[in-house]
Design a protein around this nucleic acid. Structure first.
Lengths: 241, 241
DNA sequence: CGCAGGTTTGAGGTAGATCAATGTCAGTGG
DNA sequence: CCACTGACATTGATCTACCTCAAACCTGCG
Protein backbone atom coordinates (compact mmCIF):
# COMPACT_ATOMS: atom_id res chain seq x y z
CA UNK A 1 0.00 0.00 0.00
CA UNK A 2 2.72 2.39 1.08
CA UNK A 3 4.80 1.38 -1.90
CA UNK A 4 1.94 1.65 -4.33
CA UNK A 5 1.18 5.18 -3.28
CA UNK A 6 4.72 6.17 -3.94
CA UNK A 7 4.41 4.55 -7.36
CA UNK A 8 1.68 6.93 -8.29
CA UNK A 9 4.07 9.79 -7.92
CA UNK A 10 7.19 8.48 -9.55
CA UNK A 11 6.45 5.59 -11.89
CA UNK A 12 5.97 6.43 -15.54
CA UNK A 13 7.64 9.77 -15.08
CA UNK A 14 10.17 10.15 -17.91
CA UNK A 15 13.73 9.45 -16.88
CA UNK A 16 15.00 12.82 -18.01
CA UNK A 17 12.40 14.56 -15.86
CA UNK A 18 12.90 12.38 -12.78
CA UNK A 19 16.27 13.91 -12.14
CA UNK A 20 15.20 17.40 -13.14
CA UNK A 21 15.75 20.06 -10.51
CA UNK A 22 12.81 22.05 -11.86
CA UNK A 23 10.45 19.09 -11.95
CA UNK A 24 8.38 20.19 -8.96
CA UNK A 25 8.66 23.93 -9.24
CA UNK A 26 8.10 24.82 -12.89
CA UNK A 27 5.16 24.35 -15.17
CA UNK A 28 5.96 20.65 -15.39
CA UNK A 29 4.56 20.23 -11.89
CA UNK A 30 1.09 20.71 -13.37
CA UNK A 31 1.39 17.74 -15.70
CA UNK A 32 0.36 14.13 -15.30
CA UNK A 33 2.99 11.47 -15.98
CA UNK A 34 1.75 10.77 -19.50
CA UNK A 35 1.52 14.47 -20.34
CA UNK A 36 5.03 14.85 -19.01
CA UNK A 37 6.12 11.97 -21.23
CA UNK A 38 4.53 13.60 -24.24
CA UNK A 39 6.31 16.86 -23.49
CA UNK A 40 9.66 15.29 -22.69
CA UNK A 41 9.71 13.54 -26.07
CA UNK A 42 9.98 16.93 -27.68
CA UNK A 43 12.25 18.58 -25.19
CA UNK A 44 15.99 18.93 -24.92
CA UNK A 45 18.26 20.08 -22.17
CA UNK A 46 20.71 22.78 -23.04
CA UNK A 47 23.67 24.34 -21.31
CA UNK A 48 24.14 28.04 -21.88
CA UNK A 49 27.28 30.03 -21.33
CA UNK A 50 26.75 33.49 -19.88
CA UNK A 51 25.89 35.82 -22.74
CA UNK A 52 24.20 33.22 -24.94
CA UNK A 53 20.94 34.39 -26.49
CA UNK A 54 17.91 32.17 -25.96
CA UNK A 55 15.68 34.18 -28.28
CA UNK A 56 16.09 37.53 -30.02
CA UNK A 57 13.78 40.53 -30.11
CA UNK A 58 11.46 40.20 -33.10
CA UNK A 59 12.28 36.55 -33.70
CA UNK A 60 9.62 33.92 -34.25
CA UNK A 61 8.93 31.84 -31.16
CA UNK A 62 9.49 28.16 -31.85
CA UNK A 63 10.37 27.07 -28.33
CA UNK A 64 9.43 27.62 -24.76
CA UNK A 65 11.87 26.87 -21.94
CA UNK A 66 12.17 26.20 -18.26
CA UNK A 67 15.19 27.47 -16.37
CA UNK A 68 16.85 24.65 -14.49
CA UNK A 69 19.86 26.56 -13.25
CA UNK A 70 21.11 30.12 -13.61
CA UNK A 71 19.67 33.56 -14.28
CA UNK A 72 18.17 34.75 -17.57
CA UNK A 73 17.69 38.43 -18.40
CA UNK A 74 14.87 39.75 -20.58
CA UNK A 75 15.85 42.82 -22.57
CA UNK A 76 14.48 45.38 -24.98
CA UNK A 77 16.63 47.45 -27.29
CA UNK A 78 15.81 50.65 -29.18
CA UNK A 79 16.89 51.22 -32.77
CA UNK A 80 19.81 53.40 -31.66
CA UNK A 81 21.10 50.75 -29.25
CA UNK A 82 19.75 51.99 -25.94
CA UNK A 83 18.90 48.96 -23.87
CA UNK A 84 16.67 48.14 -20.92
CA UNK A 85 16.43 44.91 -18.95
CA UNK A 86 12.71 44.38 -18.34
CA UNK A 87 12.89 41.26 -16.24
CA UNK A 88 15.12 38.71 -14.55
CA UNK A 89 14.12 35.07 -14.50
CA UNK A 90 15.40 32.57 -11.96
CA UNK A 91 15.08 28.79 -11.80
CA UNK A 92 12.54 27.24 -12.11
CA UNK A 93 10.82 30.04 -14.07
CA UNK A 94 9.19 29.56 -17.43
CA UNK A 95 10.51 31.51 -20.44
CA UNK A 96 8.23 32.33 -23.32
CA UNK A 97 5.21 34.29 -24.41
CA UNK A 98 2.22 32.01 -25.04
CA UNK A 99 -0.27 32.96 -27.77
CA UNK A 100 2.07 35.19 -29.74
CA UNK A 101 4.33 34.08 -32.55
CA UNK A 102 6.80 36.93 -32.40
CA UNK A 103 8.87 37.75 -29.34
CA UNK A 104 8.75 41.41 -28.28
CA UNK A 105 11.82 40.95 -26.11
CA UNK A 106 15.15 39.15 -26.16
CA UNK A 107 16.14 36.56 -23.58
CA UNK A 108 19.80 35.98 -22.76
CA UNK A 109 21.62 33.94 -20.14
CA UNK A 110 23.07 36.34 -17.57
CA UNK A 111 25.08 33.62 -15.85
CA UNK A 112 26.10 30.15 -17.01
CA UNK A 113 22.76 28.40 -17.09
CA UNK A 114 20.88 25.28 -17.96
CA UNK A 115 17.44 25.26 -19.54
CA UNK A 116 14.94 22.70 -20.78
CA UNK A 117 13.57 23.54 -24.24
CA UNK A 118 10.34 22.20 -25.59
CA UNK A 119 8.57 22.93 -28.81
CA UNK A 120 5.89 25.56 -28.81
CA UNK A 121 3.40 23.38 -30.66
CA UNK A 122 3.45 20.56 -28.16
CA UNK A 123 2.95 22.81 -25.17
CA UNK A 124 0.19 24.78 -26.86
CA UNK A 125 -1.55 21.47 -27.51
CA UNK A 126 -1.09 20.31 -23.92
CA UNK A 127 -2.48 23.60 -22.62
CA UNK A 128 -5.77 22.96 -24.40
CA UNK A 129 -6.27 19.67 -22.55
CA UNK A 130 -4.75 20.52 -19.19
CA UNK A 131 -6.48 23.46 -17.49
CA UNK A 132 -4.11 23.05 -14.56
CA UNK A 133 -1.22 23.83 -16.90
CA UNK A 134 -2.80 27.04 -18.16
CA UNK A 135 -3.52 27.93 -14.55
CA UNK A 136 0.16 27.54 -13.74
CA UNK A 137 1.20 29.69 -16.69
CA UNK A 138 -1.42 32.26 -15.73
CA UNK A 139 -0.01 32.48 -12.21
CA UNK A 140 3.49 32.91 -13.58
CA UNK A 141 2.31 35.70 -15.90
CA UNK A 142 0.66 37.48 -12.97
CA UNK A 143 3.79 37.10 -10.86
CA UNK A 144 5.88 38.64 -13.63
CA UNK A 145 3.33 41.44 -13.99
CA UNK A 146 3.57 42.24 -10.27
CA UNK A 147 7.35 42.31 -10.53
CA UNK A 148 7.29 44.48 -13.64
CA UNK A 149 5.04 47.02 -11.93
CA UNK A 150 7.20 47.05 -8.81
CA UNK A 151 10.13 47.83 -11.04
CA UNK A 152 8.27 50.61 -12.85
CA UNK A 153 8.09 52.43 -9.51
CA UNK A 154 11.82 51.90 -9.09
CA UNK A 155 12.60 53.17 -12.61
CA UNK A 156 10.26 56.13 -12.51
CA UNK A 157 10.58 57.47 -9.00
CA UNK A 158 13.69 56.31 -7.18
CA UNK A 159 17.12 57.94 -6.91
CA UNK A 160 20.24 56.19 -8.16
CA UNK A 161 21.12 55.15 -4.62
CA UNK A 162 17.65 53.72 -4.02
CA UNK A 163 17.75 51.95 -7.37
CA UNK A 164 21.02 50.18 -6.62
CA UNK A 165 19.83 49.23 -3.13
CA UNK A 166 16.56 47.95 -4.62
CA UNK A 167 18.53 45.84 -7.08
CA UNK A 168 20.66 44.32 -4.34
CA UNK A 169 17.57 43.56 -2.31
CA UNK A 170 15.91 41.93 -5.32
CA UNK A 171 18.89 39.70 -5.94
CA UNK A 172 19.26 38.80 -2.27
CA UNK A 173 15.65 37.62 -2.16
CA UNK A 174 15.64 35.78 -5.49
CA UNK A 175 19.04 34.29 -6.17
CA UNK A 176 18.66 31.27 -3.94
CA UNK A 177 15.14 30.85 -2.62
CA UNK A 178 16.09 27.63 -0.80
CA UNK A 179 18.84 29.17 1.25
CA UNK A 180 18.18 30.38 4.78
CA UNK A 181 21.00 32.87 4.66
CA UNK A 182 20.25 35.32 1.85
CA UNK A 183 22.78 37.83 3.09
CA UNK A 184 25.76 36.67 1.00
CA UNK A 185 25.76 35.94 -2.72
CA UNK A 186 27.37 36.43 -6.13
CA UNK A 187 25.84 39.07 -8.36
CA UNK A 188 24.47 37.44 -11.51
CA UNK A 189 24.91 40.66 -13.51
CA UNK A 190 27.86 42.78 -14.63
CA UNK A 191 27.89 46.51 -13.88
CA UNK A 192 26.76 47.13 -17.46
CA UNK A 193 23.77 44.82 -17.02
CA UNK A 194 22.88 46.39 -13.70
CA UNK A 195 22.95 49.80 -15.38
CA UNK A 196 20.61 48.51 -18.10
CA UNK A 197 18.30 47.10 -15.45
CA UNK A 198 18.20 50.33 -13.43
CA UNK A 199 18.09 52.85 -16.25
CA UNK A 200 21.47 54.31 -15.23
CA UNK A 201 25.02 54.43 -16.59
CA UNK A 202 27.82 52.07 -15.56
CA UNK A 203 29.63 54.91 -13.85
CA UNK A 204 26.68 55.89 -11.70
CA UNK A 205 26.12 52.29 -10.67
CA UNK A 206 29.78 51.97 -9.70
CA UNK A 207 29.73 55.19 -7.68
CA UNK A 208 26.65 54.05 -5.77
CA UNK A 209 28.28 50.71 -5.00
CA UNK A 210 31.31 52.41 -3.48
CA UNK A 211 29.03 54.80 -1.59
CA UNK A 212 27.05 51.90 -0.10
CA UNK A 213 30.30 50.11 0.70
CA UNK A 214 31.75 53.14 2.48
CA UNK A 215 28.57 53.47 4.53
CA UNK A 216 28.84 49.77 5.45
CA UNK A 217 25.50 48.88 3.94
CA UNK A 218 27.24 46.20 1.87
CA UNK A 219 30.62 44.49 1.66
CA UNK A 220 32.11 43.59 -1.70
CA UNK A 221 34.78 41.07 -2.69
CA UNK A 222 36.10 40.52 -6.21
CA UNK A 223 33.54 42.96 -7.65
CA UNK A 224 30.93 40.23 -7.71
CA UNK A 225 30.51 38.79 -4.25
CA UNK A 226 28.28 40.84 -1.98
CA UNK A 227 27.52 40.51 1.72
CA UNK A 228 24.67 42.35 3.45
CA UNK A 229 25.27 42.78 7.18
CA UNK A 230 21.80 44.25 7.84
CA UNK A 231 18.99 43.46 5.42
CA UNK A 232 16.53 45.88 7.03
CA UNK A 233 19.03 48.67 6.66
CA UNK A 234 19.41 47.85 2.97
CA UNK A 235 15.63 47.91 2.59
CA UNK A 236 15.51 51.39 4.06
CA UNK A 237 18.15 52.50 1.55
CA UNK A 238 15.94 51.01 -1.16
CA UNK A 239 13.06 53.24 -0.12
CA UNK A 240 10.90 50.28 0.87
CA UNK A 241 10.75 51.46 4.51
CA UNK B 1 -33.91 28.11 -38.37
CA UNK B 2 -32.50 31.56 -38.87
CA UNK B 3 -34.40 32.77 -35.85
CA UNK B 4 -33.40 29.86 -33.71
CA UNK B 5 -29.75 30.39 -34.40
CA UNK B 6 -30.01 33.95 -33.28
CA UNK B 7 -31.74 32.69 -30.13
CA UNK B 8 -28.67 30.74 -29.21
CA UNK B 9 -26.74 33.97 -28.98
CA UNK B 10 -29.13 36.27 -27.22
CA UNK B 11 -31.82 34.37 -25.35
CA UNK B 12 -31.23 33.68 -21.69
CA UNK B 13 -28.59 36.36 -21.54
CA UNK B 14 -29.31 38.47 -18.45
CA UNK B 15 -31.04 41.74 -19.22
CA UNK B 16 -28.37 43.84 -17.55
CA UNK B 17 -25.70 42.20 -19.70
CA UNK B 18 -27.64 42.40 -22.97
CA UNK B 19 -27.25 46.14 -23.10
CA UNK B 20 -23.70 46.09 -21.78
CA UNK B 21 -21.15 47.78 -23.99
CA UNK B 22 -18.45 45.46 -22.68
CA UNK B 23 -20.48 42.31 -23.21
CA UNK B 24 -18.51 41.10 -26.19
CA UNK B 25 -15.11 42.51 -25.41
CA UNK B 26 -14.42 41.78 -21.76
CA UNK B 27 -14.08 38.56 -19.83
CA UNK B 28 -17.86 38.12 -20.01
CA UNK B 29 -17.49 37.12 -23.64
CA UNK B 30 -16.03 33.82 -22.45
CA UNK B 31 -19.11 32.87 -20.48
CA UNK B 32 -22.14 30.82 -21.43
CA UNK B 33 -25.58 32.37 -20.85
CA UNK B 34 -26.14 30.54 -17.57
CA UNK B 35 -22.66 31.38 -16.29
CA UNK B 36 -23.32 34.96 -17.25
CA UNK B 37 -26.59 34.81 -15.31
CA UNK B 38 -24.79 33.45 -12.27
CA UNK B 39 -22.25 36.24 -12.43
CA UNK B 40 -24.75 39.00 -13.12
CA UNK B 41 -26.72 38.07 -10.01
CA UNK B 42 -23.76 39.18 -7.96
CA UNK B 43 -22.74 42.15 -10.00
CA UNK B 44 -23.59 45.82 -9.88
CA UNK B 45 -23.01 48.67 -12.24
CA UNK B 46 -21.33 51.70 -10.83
CA UNK B 47 -20.69 55.21 -12.07
CA UNK B 48 -17.41 56.75 -11.00
CA UNK B 49 -16.51 60.40 -10.99
CA UNK B 50 -12.95 61.18 -12.05
CA UNK B 51 -10.73 60.72 -9.01
CA UNK B 52 -12.82 58.05 -7.31
CA UNK B 53 -10.81 55.16 -5.94
CA UNK B 54 -11.85 51.66 -7.01
CA UNK B 55 -9.44 49.92 -4.67
CA UNK B 56 -6.58 51.14 -2.50
CA UNK B 57 -3.00 49.89 -2.24
CA UNK B 58 -2.83 47.22 0.46
CA UNK B 59 -6.58 46.76 0.67
CA UNK B 60 -8.25 43.37 0.65
CA UNK B 61 -9.70 42.45 -2.73
CA UNK B 62 -13.41 41.73 -2.46
CA UNK B 63 -14.40 42.66 -6.01
CA UNK B 64 -13.26 42.40 -9.56
CA UNK B 65 -14.51 44.81 -12.20
CA UNK B 66 -14.91 45.34 -15.90
CA UNK B 67 -14.52 48.83 -17.32
CA UNK B 68 -17.57 49.76 -19.39
CA UNK B 69 -16.64 53.35 -20.11
CA UNK B 70 -13.73 55.59 -19.19
CA UNK B 71 -10.08 55.23 -18.21
CA UNK B 72 -8.77 53.77 -14.95
CA UNK B 73 -5.22 54.38 -13.73
CA UNK B 74 -3.25 51.87 -11.64
CA UNK B 75 -0.87 53.51 -9.20
CA UNK B 76 1.78 52.73 -6.62
CA UNK B 77 2.84 55.11 -3.88
CA UNK B 78 5.94 55.12 -1.70
CA UNK B 79 5.79 55.87 2.02
CA UNK B 80 6.99 59.44 1.45
CA UNK B 81 4.31 60.12 -1.14
CA UNK B 82 6.21 59.64 -4.39
CA UNK B 83 3.81 58.14 -6.88
CA UNK B 84 4.02 56.15 -10.10
CA UNK B 85 1.24 55.17 -12.47
CA UNK B 86 2.01 51.58 -13.47
CA UNK B 87 -0.80 51.03 -15.93
CA UNK B 88 -3.77 52.54 -17.72
CA UNK B 89 -6.88 50.45 -18.31
CA UNK B 90 -9.42 51.19 -21.01
CA UNK B 91 -12.86 49.72 -21.68
CA UNK B 92 -13.51 46.80 -21.80
CA UNK B 93 -10.49 45.83 -19.69
CA UNK B 94 -10.69 43.71 -16.57
CA UNK B 95 -9.56 45.19 -13.24
CA UNK B 96 -8.31 42.92 -10.49
CA UNK B 97 -5.59 40.58 -9.42
CA UNK B 98 -6.81 36.97 -9.38
CA UNK B 99 -5.34 34.59 -6.79
CA UNK B 100 -4.17 37.24 -4.35
CA UNK B 101 -6.23 38.65 -1.50
CA UNK B 102 -4.35 41.90 -1.06
CA UNK B 103 -3.97 44.49 -3.79
CA UNK B 104 -0.39 45.67 -4.39
CA UNK B 105 -1.63 48.67 -6.32
CA UNK B 106 -4.40 51.25 -6.18
CA UNK B 107 -6.94 51.69 -8.97
CA UNK B 108 -8.59 55.04 -9.52
CA UNK B 109 -10.89 56.44 -12.20
CA UNK B 110 -8.87 58.89 -14.30
CA UNK B 111 -11.94 60.14 -16.15
CA UNK B 112 -15.64 59.86 -15.36
CA UNK B 113 -16.20 56.15 -15.80
CA UNK B 114 -18.59 53.30 -15.50
CA UNK B 115 -17.63 49.86 -14.27
CA UNK B 116 -19.33 46.54 -13.60
CA UNK B 117 -18.40 45.08 -10.20
CA UNK B 118 -18.74 41.43 -9.33
CA UNK B 119 -17.76 39.61 -6.22
CA UNK B 120 -14.42 37.91 -6.11
CA UNK B 121 -15.81 34.64 -4.79
CA UNK B 122 -18.27 34.13 -7.63
CA UNK B 123 -15.72 34.75 -10.34
CA UNK B 124 -13.12 32.54 -8.65
CA UNK B 125 -15.73 29.78 -8.60
CA UNK B 126 -16.63 30.30 -12.25
CA UNK B 127 -12.96 30.20 -13.25
CA UNK B 128 -12.66 26.69 -11.86
CA UNK B 129 -15.41 25.40 -14.15
CA UNK B 130 -14.81 27.52 -17.23
CA UNK B 131 -11.33 27.04 -18.70
CA UNK B 132 -12.22 29.50 -21.43
CA UNK B 133 -12.63 32.18 -18.76
CA UNK B 134 -9.24 31.55 -17.26
CA UNK B 135 -7.82 31.60 -20.77
CA UNK B 136 -9.31 35.05 -21.30
CA UNK B 137 -7.91 36.32 -18.01
CA UNK B 138 -4.54 34.79 -18.86
CA UNK B 139 -4.48 36.64 -22.18
CA UNK B 140 -5.35 39.90 -20.46
CA UNK B 141 -2.54 39.37 -17.94
CA UNK B 142 -0.07 38.75 -20.75
CA UNK B 143 -1.26 41.85 -22.61
CA UNK B 144 -0.74 43.94 -19.47
CA UNK B 145 2.69 42.37 -19.00
CA UNK B 146 3.70 43.32 -22.55
CA UNK B 147 2.50 46.87 -21.95
CA UNK B 148 4.28 47.11 -18.60
CA UNK B 149 7.56 46.01 -20.19
CA UNK B 150 7.18 48.45 -23.06
CA UNK B 151 6.75 51.16 -20.49
CA UNK B 152 9.82 50.04 -18.53
CA UNK B 153 11.89 50.85 -21.60
CA UNK B 154 10.22 54.27 -21.75
CA UNK B 155 10.84 54.94 -18.04
CA UNK B 156 14.41 53.68 -17.99
CA UNK B 157 15.88 54.85 -21.25
CA UNK B 158 13.92 57.63 -22.92
CA UNK B 159 14.37 61.41 -22.67
CA UNK B 160 11.58 63.66 -21.37
CA UNK B 161 10.62 64.59 -24.94
CA UNK B 162 10.47 60.95 -26.01
CA UNK B 163 8.47 60.07 -22.92
CA UNK B 164 5.80 62.68 -23.59
CA UNK B 165 5.60 61.69 -27.26
CA UNK B 166 5.33 58.03 -26.22
CA UNK B 167 2.50 58.92 -23.90
CA UNK B 168 0.60 60.79 -26.60
CA UNK B 169 1.08 57.89 -28.98
CA UNK B 170 -0.19 55.44 -26.36
CA UNK B 171 -3.33 57.47 -25.74
CA UNK B 172 -3.95 57.98 -29.45
CA UNK B 173 -3.87 54.24 -30.04
CA UNK B 174 -5.90 53.23 -26.97
CA UNK B 175 -8.48 55.88 -26.16
CA UNK B 176 -11.01 54.87 -28.79
CA UNK B 177 -10.12 51.58 -30.45
CA UNK B 178 -13.30 51.68 -32.55
CA UNK B 179 -12.57 55.01 -34.17
CA UNK B 180 -10.88 55.20 -37.57
CA UNK B 181 -9.49 58.62 -36.87
CA UNK B 182 -7.19 58.33 -33.87
CA UNK B 183 -5.54 61.67 -34.54
CA UNK B 184 -7.80 63.84 -32.36
CA UNK B 185 -8.81 63.15 -28.77
CA UNK B 186 -9.17 64.41 -25.20
CA UNK B 187 -6.39 63.52 -22.80
CA UNK B 188 -7.76 61.31 -20.02
CA UNK B 189 -5.05 62.48 -17.61
CA UNK B 190 -4.10 65.77 -15.96
CA UNK B 191 -0.53 67.07 -16.24
CA UNK B 192 0.11 65.76 -12.72
CA UNK B 193 -1.06 62.27 -13.72
CA UNK B 194 1.00 62.36 -16.89
CA UNK B 195 4.04 63.27 -14.79
CA UNK B 196 3.36 60.33 -12.48
CA UNK B 197 3.01 58.05 -15.49
CA UNK B 198 6.26 59.21 -17.09
CA UNK B 199 8.42 59.56 -13.98
CA UNK B 200 8.79 63.32 -14.51
CA UNK B 201 7.61 66.53 -12.83
CA UNK B 202 4.57 68.52 -13.90
CA UNK B 203 6.78 71.36 -15.10
CA UNK B 204 8.88 69.16 -17.36
CA UNK B 205 5.76 67.62 -18.87
CA UNK B 206 4.33 71.07 -19.53
CA UNK B 207 7.54 72.30 -21.14
CA UNK B 208 7.66 69.28 -23.44
CA UNK B 209 4.04 69.87 -24.45
CA UNK B 210 4.79 73.44 -25.49
CA UNK B 211 7.94 72.30 -27.26
CA UNK B 212 6.00 69.70 -29.27
CA UNK B 213 3.32 72.30 -29.99
CA UNK B 214 5.85 74.85 -31.24
CA UNK B 215 7.38 72.22 -33.52
CA UNK B 216 3.90 71.41 -34.85
CA UNK B 217 4.04 67.78 -33.78
CA UNK B 218 0.76 68.34 -31.89
CA UNK B 219 -1.98 70.96 -31.60
CA UNK B 220 -3.60 71.66 -28.24
CA UNK B 221 -6.92 73.28 -27.32
CA UNK B 222 -8.16 73.92 -23.78
CA UNK B 223 -5.16 72.07 -22.29
CA UNK B 224 -6.90 68.76 -22.83
CA UNK B 225 -7.82 68.34 -26.48
CA UNK B 226 -4.96 67.16 -28.67
CA UNK B 227 -4.69 66.79 -32.44
CA UNK B 228 -1.89 64.90 -34.15
CA UNK B 229 -1.33 66.05 -37.74
CA UNK B 230 1.24 63.34 -38.53
CA UNK B 231 1.20 60.15 -36.49
CA UNK B 232 4.43 58.80 -38.01
CA UNK B 233 6.21 62.00 -37.07
CA UNK B 234 4.97 61.62 -33.49
CA UNK B 235 6.24 58.04 -33.44
CA UNK B 236 9.68 59.21 -34.47
CA UNK B 237 9.64 61.72 -31.64
CA UNK B 238 8.72 58.84 -29.34
CA UNK B 239 11.84 56.95 -30.41
CA UNK B 240 9.82 54.06 -31.80
CA UNK B 241 10.87 54.53 -35.48
C1' DC C 1 -15.34 90.53 -9.38
C1' DG C 2 -12.39 87.44 -6.95
C1' DC C 3 -11.02 83.19 -5.89
C1' DA C 4 -9.29 78.30 -6.68
C1' DG C 5 -7.35 74.55 -9.32
C1' DG C 6 -4.79 73.53 -12.92
C1' DT C 7 -1.21 75.05 -16.18
C1' DT C 8 2.58 77.62 -18.04
C1' DT C 9 6.85 80.13 -17.77
C1' DG C 10 11.25 81.68 -15.73
C1' DA C 11 15.64 81.51 -12.96
C1' DG C 12 18.78 78.79 -10.71
C1' DG C 13 20.45 74.35 -8.59
C1' DT C 14 21.72 69.46 -8.76
C1' DA C 15 21.68 64.47 -9.69
C1' DG C 16 23.23 61.87 -12.91
C1' DA C 17 25.38 61.71 -17.77
C1' DT C 18 29.46 62.15 -20.46
C1' DC C 19 34.23 61.98 -21.43
C1' DA C 20 38.63 60.52 -20.15
C1' DA C 21 42.08 58.48 -17.29
C1' DT C 22 43.44 55.01 -14.11
C1' DG C 23 43.05 50.64 -11.61
C1' DT C 24 42.28 45.56 -11.07
C1' DC C 25 42.70 40.97 -12.29
C1' DA C 26 42.64 36.65 -14.88
C1' DG C 27 44.76 34.79 -18.74
C1' DT C 28 48.70 34.01 -22.01
C1' DG C 29 52.94 33.66 -23.53
C1' DG C 30 57.85 34.63 -23.23
C1' DC D 1 58.35 34.30 -12.65
C1' DC D 2 57.09 38.35 -14.75
C1' DA D 3 55.61 41.45 -18.72
C1' DC D 4 51.55 42.01 -21.80
C1' DT D 5 46.83 41.93 -22.95
C1' DG D 6 41.86 42.73 -22.77
C1' DA D 7 37.64 42.91 -20.24
C1' DC D 8 35.69 45.03 -16.59
C1' DA D 9 35.41 48.36 -12.82
C1' DT D 10 36.57 52.62 -10.42
C1' DT D 11 37.54 57.45 -10.04
C1' DG D 12 37.78 62.33 -11.45
C1' DA D 13 36.35 66.61 -13.96
C1' DT D 14 32.94 68.73 -16.43
C1' DC D 15 28.45 69.25 -18.61
C1' DT D 16 23.46 69.20 -19.07
C1' DA D 17 18.73 67.53 -18.73
C1' DC D 18 15.71 67.66 -15.54
C1' DC D 19 14.25 69.24 -10.83
C1' DT D 20 13.05 72.87 -7.54
C1' DC D 21 11.21 77.00 -6.20
C1' DA D 22 8.56 80.92 -7.39
C1' DA D 23 5.70 83.80 -9.98
C1' DA D 24 2.30 84.60 -13.54
C1' DC D 25 -1.38 82.97 -16.25
C1' DC D 26 -5.68 80.96 -17.62
C1' DT D 27 -10.60 79.46 -17.12
C1' DG D 28 -14.50 78.33 -15.07
C1' DC D 29 -17.64 79.51 -11.11
C1' DG D 30 -19.64 81.25 -6.75
Amino acid sequence: MEIRRQDIHSSDVPVVCKACEARHGGVCAALSPDQLLELSKHSTRQRLEAGTEVIGQGETVTNYSNIIRGVVKLTKVMADGRQQIVGLQFAPDFIGRPFLTESAIAAEAATDSEICNFSRGVLDRLVKNAPELEHKLHRQALKELDEARDWMLTLGRKSAQEKVASFLYLIATHIDPESVDTSSFDLPLSRADIADFLGLTIETVSRQFTKLRKENVIHIENNRHVTIPDMDRLMRYAGND
